[in-house]
Design a protein around this nucleic acid. Structure first.
Lengths: 235, 235
DNA sequence: GGAAAAGCTGACTGTTCGGTCAAGAACTGA
DNA sequence: TCAGTTCTTGACCGAACAGTCAGCTTTTCC
């Protein structure tokens, strides 16, 4: 109950405050370890001891920075949600549908490749009722989808892409791209691969893109996809 | 350690044996309750007490039929896996791609509608490493996918559908259709619906089908989809 | 250099949960 | 009817776990 206790999850957001170097570093280490453990074991299956071990810190230290397991979990989720919304910015009324869709699919596939744990934590949360993200879904995400569905409807009305139910179309993109992170085990086993390389992802991305563009009634790109290694990460 | 203890999960499979009526009924009740609780809470988050309460039986009774929580979980998974493979039977070399794909997508969407808990339990298992289904994935499912990919490749080679990577195409169908069970919370919140009715599912199925057929370069169906209520369930 | 603040942590606690057990009730078949 | 089998269940146990805390060290800032 020391005064320091008051500085917890919420402060993670505040990257401008002059919080100590030590605090910042440790919070980051803990969040990184927690994201991984929560992804692998789910909220209930994860233990503070596991997370502590992965972070290389004693368990009591976690409780110093994050009062409770719940608080730590919410901090991990916050981190993930903030990242979730960004890449769809490419959807604007004036944008070329092909270009916007291509950029979006590539960004989502890159997210699945580079931050699979984040995707899994989110999937796990939704799967088990999403109580922790109810507000996010019903407000932030809904607003975004409403807006972007409007953009897509505009594209359709202008004859720039085939008629689709904009919301279902977005669901399809999410489902397919996130599948490569969330169901990686299944994909690897079915393909008989031990792991999915960057090359694998490049090929899968190209194929997903092809199918998505076809579903939108758009011509397939001539240029092959070259994945970059630069994906902004706030973790 | 009574002799009866030996009759556990494995017997669930054997529906022909003249096992007692009471046993059969209770095993079924427990499996049904367990599927639901495991779906809602995951393996670690589910408690035997929760399952017992949902089944309307004392906890010790569960341990009489299923020795351990692990054993019960495996029985639930077994039940689900058996169901997983069936609907893709419509993929045969001589079948019409449009008809086969339509039947498959409808079957998968119906599974998501009528057995969402099963889908969630499976998703949860894969999400957390799939240790319990490793053999299923690497053997049964891989064989099936290899075979059906061959069928699809044949369709493509015969010019009966657009060129696709058969395996990625199957992943897409799985991802999209299962998404409606696994991510139902997200879908409901984004659409602003309290629940998804049969009519909602009919509309979503039609849209998914349209996108899948387009992705396969096939003409869209003239006839609207009319969902049936008859989905075989072995639970 | 020194005092206050921030950070650290081993040892501990209360609770929850999977699993056990022994004694009895209900069912079965001859 | 009766013996054997199957089924039932409250009470209990040990392990695992989240969370606490008091006393300590390190850092910060004047």
């Amino acid at each position: 109950m020391a005064k320091a206790m008051a500085r917890t999850a919420a402060d993670t957001t505040d990257t401008t405050s002059p919080q100590g170097r030590i605090r910042r570093e440790n919070v980051e280490r803990i969040l990184k370890a927690a994201e991984r453990v929560f992804a692998e074991a789910g909220f209930a299956g994860a233990t503070m001891a596991d997370i502590a071990e992965r972070a290389g810190l004693p368990k009591a230290n976690l409780h110093y920075y994050f009062g409770t397991k719940d608080e730590l979990y919410r901090a991990v989720l916050d981190n993930i949600l903030r990242m979730w919304l960004a890449p769809i910015d490419s959807f604007t009324p004036d944008a070329d549908p092909s270009v916007a869709l291509t950029a979006y699919v590539i960004a989502k596939m890159e997210a699945s490749r580079t931050r699979p744990h984040a995707s899994k934590v989110f999937a796990n949360e939704i799967l088990h009722g999403g109580n922790q993200v109810e507000r996010f879904l019903a407000e932030d995400l809904k607003s975004l989808v409403d807006a972007k569905a409007g953009v897509i409807d505009g594209w359709v009305a202008a004859g720039r892409m085939a008629p689709v139910d904009a919301r279902q179309f977005l669901f399809m993109i999410w489902a397919v791209t996130q599948h490569y992170a969330d169901f990686d085990v299944q994909i690897r086993k079915v393909l008989g691969r031990r792991s999915l390389t960057r090359q694998d992802f490049a090929a899968m991305t190209a194929e997903v893109l092809r199918m998505v563009l076809r579903a939108a009634g758009l011509p397939e790109p001539e240029i092959p996809i070259t994945p970059t290694d630069s994906v902004p990460s706030n973790l």
